[in-house]
Design a protein around this nucleic acid. Structure first.
Lengths: 145, 145
DNA sequence: GTAATTGCAAATACTTTGCCACGTA
DNA sequence: TACGTGGCAAAGTATTTGCAATTAC
């Protein structure tokens, strides 16, 4: 709890250093995310106990945008609004390398290092139809100005 | 090329075995995906050379749904329509375990096995701001009827 | 006081469904 | 013929933007 409050203060401090203004919404957003054991959607955020009736969806959206732009947050998954689909080739697993600037997607040629952990988790967690997805993200050489 | 055609035939065969009817749209969809080195969005599919003016967006959508339901395709990423966001804690990487039925998201406690490959790829590819995301998917014990 | 931030409403964008015509088996 | 599939149009849902009012500094 104290950790959460201190972490929030640190995040707010980093925002200030990056030219953002400290607002109530910002504080509640940090507390909400720090208290959550998992990533959250914009809807979950704007309807959470701390933010609900506290601020508008658009406010949460723009706040998150700002925090992403200064490197305090990240959007998970492929960075397009649309969903991606792939064929399932039996016994062929594929990892991907994605440019966060131009959106290009390439296949990773190296062998996937996750299968061992996948087997362990399959057994330990009791999940069925178990599989994993591994994506690498970054700015590709072409997009580095 | 011949591989692509044969693979398409095999996929069509598997569709038939699962009670789906073989249609032109289905054939063009398989060819398109097999020729693509990466996953595709519904828009990319319905506007691709093979499918464009060949069939409607809704058709592609429903076709993909059917193929997913019989296990020939997969939708990448978290299975919610909305995007997920997370705070970036310095030096804290997190992998996730997600139930494809109830949508629950848990943190994976085991150490992440990807860092070595990440370092290799960072150097080899010349990408900047490099990072990765690893998700495990499956049906959690609670959702296994 | 100045510029960033907010709320509300409207505009976009992607996804999903209804309904009837059509094509496969 | 019977029923899965397709096209078109409309509905649904998440995201994004415009603008005037408000707030942090």
């Amino acid at each position: 709890m104290i950790d959460t409050i201190n972490a929030t203060k640190e995040f707010m401090q980093r925002c200030r250093e990056n030219g953002l203004r400290r607002t109530k919404a910002m504080e509640q957003l940090f507390l909400t995310l720090l208290e959550s054991p998992r990533p959250m959607t914009l809807n979950e955020l704007s309807q959470s106990a701390r933010l609900n009736e506290q601020c508008d969806k658009a406010t949460v959206f723009r706040l998150v945008q700002r925090l992403i732009s200064i490197g305090l947050m990240r959007r998970l998954g492929l960075h397009e609004r649309a969903a991606y689909f792939t064929l399932l080739m039996p016994n062929k697993h594929q990892d991907y390398l994605i440019c966060t600037d131009c959106g290009s997607i390439e296949q990773v040629e190296a062998p996937c290092p996750v299968h061992k952990l996948e087997d362990e988790l399959r057994e330990k967690t009791g999940f069925r139809n178990f599989y994993h997805e591994l994506f690498f993200f970054g700015t590709c050489p072409c997009c580095q100005v």
